[in-house]
């Protein structure tokens, strides 16, 4: 309908079709070349199939670990192809349960509904993570109490001056419903005081997006996986405890969760090779390098 204007002029064509025969051959040649190029590309993609492949998908929190481990493993095993993608914890668990991928990644526990549908799921903890409360670097505030944090995220405190900052409105950022990070945050911060995340909070569908928004908007506050905290933003202390790996390990920082790799049933040889690699010293080195906490 809306593209019909591209093909107007049919009647004009009718009257001058006599003069076209030579041009048509040019058009045909061009299109044949185009088709051959595509066929070649297509064939190139399909290529030889005897390479061992492993597919990993799921949580965006675990994604950096999986990507880096896959890269390291592929460097040492040229015959191995590991395809790593994201999609979220729910997608990872669902796809591994349905047998579409080899390993699912999850940044939350497997839910009972999921266990019912796929009773064979096996989860291995490969790292620990925490959730940090972050603000823009220009924000004068360095720490909040747990009560203040929950009031801010519930929309009861709406101005920075109420917690000792400058006089400007607070913009609350949150992850979407179903995100592992949000679940952990709600469990530790909001549920104890029976609050819910404010309805006006802006939903950002990934850790990276929360970080990017906090970096550019000096009135915003958000929460994200500890592994995503870097120098472009500022992580707030809660009740005087800084959000650092050491404090989480020592049990001082109040929020902690486990990151999982999930397989359907016992992992087969290739799957356990990958999981073992993530659990090895090299793999756990990656976990730490990415800002998460080793399980060892």
């Amino acid at each position: 309908m809306c593209h019909s204007f591209y093909f107007g002029g049919g009647d004009i064509m009718r009257s001058k079709t006599k003069t076209k025969s030579k041009k048509i051959t040019i058009g045909m040649r061009v299109s044949i070349v185009g088709i051959i190029v595509f066929a070649a590309l297509f064939a190139g993609c399909i290529g030889d199939n005897d390479i061992k492949t492993l597919t990993v998908a799921g949580s965006t929190t675990v994604l950096p670990i999986n990507q880096e481990c896959a890269r390291l493993m592929m460097d040492t095993n040229p015959g191995l192809k590991i395809s790593v993608s994201g999609g979220g914890s729910g997608h990872g668990i669902k796809s591994v349960g349905a047998g579409e991928i080899n390993i699912g990644a999850a940044s939350r526990d497997i839910k009972s509904e999921e266990m019912e549908t796929y009773p064979d799921l096996k989860a291995v903890g490969v790292g620990k993570d925490s959730v940090a409360i972050v603000v823009n670097r220009a924000n004068s505030i360095n720490g909040l109490t747990m009560d203040e944090v929950s009031k801010i995220f519930a929309g009861e405190i709406t101005n920075w001056k109420e917690v000792g900052g400058e006089d400007s409105k607070i913009r609350v950022l949150t992850r979407e419903d179903g995100s592992g990070t949000r679940e952990v945050f709600e469990k530790y911060v909001l549920k104890p005081s029976l609050r819910d995340i404010s309805k006006e909070a802006s939903v950002k569908p990934s850790n990276g997006e929360v970080r990017a928004t906090v970096k550019t908007d000096d009135k915003s506050i958000g929460y994200l996986s500890l592994g995503y905290v870097d120098t472009s933003i500022k992580a707030l202390g809660i009740d005087g405890v800084e959000a650092t790996v050491e404090n989480v390990l020592a049990g001082n920082y109040p929020i902690v969760r486990t990151l999982y790799l999930v397989t359907n049933g016992e992992p087969d040889k290739l799957e356990s090779e990958f999981i073992d690699f993530v659990l090895s010293n090299d793999g756990q080195g990656v976990v730490e390098e990415m800002g998460y906490i080793s399980v060892k």
Binding site: G88, S89, G90, S179, K199, E200, V203, P205
Partner: peptide, 28 residues
């Protein structure tokens, strides 16, 4: 994309539309 969308009263308010709710929600 606010957490719980409401009927907007100003053009400077954030909103969710049908398509954005689908894309944000479907992976999780």
């Amino acid at each position: 994309n606010p957490n719980i969308p409401w009927i907007p009263s100003s053009i400077l308010e954030p909103v969710s539309v049908l398509t954005s709710v689908i894309v944000i929600g479907i992976n999780y």
